[in-house]
Design a protein around this nucleic acid. Structure first.
Lengths: 328, 328
DNA sequence: ATGAAAGCGCTAACAA
DNA sequence: TTGTTAGCGCTTTCAT
């Protein structure tokens, strides 16, 4: 069996209570005693049993994150930042993948809720009511979704799309096509919102196509529609779709960016590696993960009373798929 | 406070022991009683407190995984399979990212060890002794690393490399270059081993270049060396390097596969999306994740006595970057 | 400043 | 088949 608080107490010739205090409330114990206890603890390699501690304190020292797809680099970017920050704060991280299934999302959160102090949730498709219900009995931070009364780490994709559109306007584009992602996704609505506002403001005609599955195949399909719609620039919901668009245009012998400009969104690794390299918008993924932890811990520490929603800025990355429109 | 076993017991008019049994050893209680208890439990929404249970059973119902880099699609592929399987077995999953730092790896495993029943570890660079020390006091399954006496989920990359070489031989290549990944990595050694064996057997000259950082930039750098070495085929340690090679060759106006063939390893998403699409080797990532869980649970269930090492087959995927060598 | 003791929610002997 | 009871390892009153 592992070394317990009793072993330390005996060896240090104090009571278990003193050992407990020496570790979790050092100022309540005389320095000399404390040092002795700490020395013994270190010597024996004592590690408090978290289950026992949690049983009495009601807190676990764990947080959880549930995402729609662990193979999506977007979420793993967030996860990476999140777990790094959690570790700094001495929290361990549970992870769960819902496979894009809203029902599973709700279940996973409930299952996780019992063993964590709070949950970071990326659930683009779960409905508001469910989310509120969950927030009732768990500390919750939403990722990239804004809901009144629930903390959230947000990436300002509307502003990112505004940058995209203004970039295209500056190049001279007047008729652009937006390739929708899933209609129900908060991100898709945000991106479209930013785009529409900017388009109206700059007098640009915005042709909306889709929705398409936010995948490579979706881009393949969307490309033909966009070409038929006679736009000079194609604004894809995300990088993967943009990649599909690029492939399809190449197959059809339509040169990018000479004949048509293309933009993505997310700045995944291969956005800079494809040819021509993709103009896109970078999301502060790791930062969002760290922020989510901070918001969560703040919420927990404040007895679930404090709510904050923080917007992180996105950044347009101009590469090789955008240029002035063809003059035919 | 949440509903406890006592609430259920009272409402169902039985003792807490009966409730406990009804849930964790149903056959020890009379069907009628069991049904009543279960009904009450469901009605009250009772969920056993895992901390309390774990305190007495000594088991946590959690497993952990630590990987070098959560942004590497290789590991997230494994993670996805692993967490799906773990959930089926009613285990929750802790995740930790060591940022490619072997020291951190060892620490993270130790920190995690207290709260899990076992750990799946991807540690290409940690040394054998450390691994053995860890296996002493934790149930351990190694990912893609074979060590006598420790369970492992292996992907047979040596065989994958053999397939690559035989594919090239069939095309007529007689002088191939291997672009090394990190020298210390078990995977790199395995891939090289498979390659060398096959090369010897088929009388192919194998020029070894590197080591290079297993990244895009590594490929950029390696490409020039490979060209100077006058090989007709370039076998990269992994897809990302291969992508760098492709980019560099394109910049230099060297056509692939006409002037030189290129192969990758891993079959990441963009391997099929780049142009020309990359000939590479597919790894059974999700399968490896699921296998790792199975091995771990088996090891735990057998009182840490059972050890298995299972090799999963890899699969050559022939695409557009390989063809017959240039005849100059 | 320290110790004694109660008890967190649960499981596992042991009794009945 | 069911109930009684003794802890699992820890924190936290309440005394001293």
């Amino acid at each position: 069996m592992a070394v317990t608080i009793r072993d330390v107490a005996r060896q240090a010739e104090v009571s278990v209570a003193t050992v407990s205090r020496a570790l979790s409330a050092p100022d309540l114990v005389r320095p000399a005693t404390r040092d002795r206890v700490l020395a013994v603890a270190a010597e024996l390699g004592y590690q408090p049993n978290r289950a026992a501690r949690s049983l009495i304190t009601g807190r676990t020292g764990n947080i959880g994150i549930v995402v729609p797809d662990l193979e999506n680099p977007f979420f793993t970017g967030v996860l990476k930042g999140l777990q790094a920050r959690a570790r700094q704060a001495d929290y361990a991280v549970f992870v769960s993948d819902s496979d894009e299934d809203p029902t599973a999302e709700a279940m996973l959160v409930r299952a996780m809720a019992k063993q964590v102090d709070g949950i970071v949730l990326a659930a683009p498709a779960l409905d508001d009511d469910q989310l509120y219900a969950i927030a009732e009995d768990t500390s919750l931070v939403l990722l990239n979704r804004r809901l009144r009364g629930i903390s959230a780490a947000l990436m300002n994709s509307a502003a990112g799309m505004r940058q995209v559109l203004e970039h295209l306007v500056a190049l001279g584009h007047r008729r652009c096509g937006y390739l929708h992602g899933p209609r129900t996704s908060w991100s898709n609505r945000e991106r479209r919102r930013g785009l529409r506002a900017a388009a109206t403001q700059h007098g640009v005609e915005l042709v909306e196509l889709g929705p398409f599955p936010p995948r490579y195949e979706g881009g393949l399909q969307a490309a033909d529609l966009a070409v038929a719609a006679d736009v000079t620039a194609i604004i894809a919901y995300n990088d993967i779709m943009a990649l599909g668009v690029l492939a399809r245009l190449r197959d059809r012998g339509i040169p990018v960016p000479e004949a048509v400009s293309v933009t993505g969104f997310d700045d995944l690794v291969f956005a800079s590696l494809c040819s021509p390299p993709l103009t896109t918008v970078a999301m502060p993924l790791g930062q969002a993960g760290r922020l989510a932890v901070d918001l969560l811990l703040e919420h927990i520490a404040s007895d679930r009373t404090e709510i904050s929603q923080v917007d992180l800025e996105t950044q347009l990355i101009v590469r090789g798929t955008t240029s002035t429109p063809a003059t035919n």
